[in-house]
């Protein structure tokens, strides 16, 4: 318990970055969810690191903690309902215990996540373009027109036919596989 409290102590915004440190470091990560039926141990003592330009695939049966550990990297767990210990560093910045403010600058810029099942992971009432533009403009100071241009380029890049027209479509108008291109 003391260890838990210690790990959740707010960390300084930017820890000194050592050049030898890989881009993403996950060290002794443990994620637990307190429930009415006791503590659920979702991830225990996970350690890995990924350098820039590297790819790491995490494989496991369902319920083995792939999603929970990956969501922890973006700090997407509800802090009131989750206990996290260990350390996650993205470009040297500590994620575990970081403020929402600090995490917002990392999310969608230095670390992003493509969720499975685009039909539920994308907002049903906003067009694909609007949702890409929104994310892009959060981290880049550009006007709407430029951002939309970029969104079309991105759709083209992932091989969506007629990207300039599809950009104004809603998620449900894309076929299952196509929708993955977010």
């Amino acid at each position: 318990m003391t260890e838990v409290l210690h790990a959740r102590e707010p960390q300084p915004e930017a820890l000194p970055t050592s050049d030898s440190d890989p881009f993403l470091v996950v060290e002794n990560l443990t994620v637990q969810f307190p429930t009415h039926d006791g503590l659920v141990q979702a991830v225990s003592d996970l350690t890995y690191c990924v350098g820039l330009g590297q790819t790491l695939g995490i494989v496991g049966e369902s319920g083995s903690g792939k999603s929970v550990s990956s969501m922890a990297v973006l700090g997407l767990h509800d802090e009131k309902r989750t206990r996290m210990t260990g350390s996650i560093r993205i470009a040297g910045k500590e994620v575990v215990g970081a403020s929402d403010q600090a995490m917002r600058r990392i999310r969608g810029k230095e670390a992003a996540m493509i969720f499975q099942d685009p039909l539920t992971a994308l907002h049903p009432f906003y067009t694909i373009g609007a949702q890409i533009v929104e994310a892009y403009r959060l981290h880049n100071h550009v006007n709407k027109k430029t951002a939309k241009q970029r969104a079309v380029e991105m759709l083209d890049l992932v091989g969506i036919p007629q990207p300039d027209r599809r950009v104004d479509d809603y998620p449900h108008q894309f076929s299952g596989g196509c929708g993955n291109a977010r």
């Binding site: 917002r104 969608g108 992971a121």
Partner: peptide
Amino acid sequence: EDFIRTASAKGLPRNKVLFKHGLRA
């Protein structure tokens, strides 16, 4: 919903997630 998690994962401020994405639906 999953799309709310997506909105947070993009880096949207919490109130925007709540009022733009949440309230709209």
